[in-house]
Amino acid sequence: MDAPAIRIKAVYAHLDCLLTGIERLKKAGYSGFTVQAPLPRHEIEEIMYEGQPSHVRWWTLTGAITGLATGLLLTALTHATWPMINPGGKPVVAIVPFTVIMFECTILFGALATFAGMMFHAGLPTYWFDRALRDPRMTDASFGITFLRALPKDKDRITDLLRQSGASEVTTGDDTVYEVPNDG
């Protein structure tokens, strides 16, 4: 039977060391690790995603098209069903005045779909992150690389790579859990 997977976590005080660590891990063929940062840095995004844009954009496009169609259908079908509402002798289905509603629905549905897409792709809301990732230093000033399920045979190689890249702290197993002093 295989030995159980282990956690490995490196904490970095410097951005350049973090980027070096990520690059060395990728060069060595490792993946499946999580990078944490207290702020968005395009350098991290470039290394992790290699210029691939987020899939959130498809949610935005779908939402906007749905909104446009909803705006058109809501206005046109309402007036087609109740044609008595006809001020100023406009056509029953008058596209120009309906454009405002269509525009607003496009924006509304597009923005809400973007929000839903962001939540989906960011994995939010979640309150059950592994304890190794619930490190308050990562929202303060530190950067981190965490393997939640590294193979035990890779442990030494990974920790060496992380240490050599300039990590200020490399921990494994239960030591990866940050203990908040006197936390209520």
Binding site: T34, V35, Q36, A37, P38, L39, P40, I44, E45, M48, Y49, P53, S54, V56, R57, T60, I107, G110, A111, T114, F115, G117, M118, M119, F120, H121, A122, G123, L124, P125, T126, Y127, W128, F129, L133, R134, M138, T139
Partner: peptide, 25 residues
């Protein structure tokens, strides 16, 4: 905070969405 931990996956989706929100707003 919805469980935000600043992972690369979260920042990637967040930054894309933020740009779209700005473009809509």
């Amino acid at each position: 905070s919805l469980g935000w931990r600043g992972t690369h996956r979260q920042w990637h989706a967040y930054m894309a969405a933020y740009g779209f929100f700005a473009a809509f707003a």
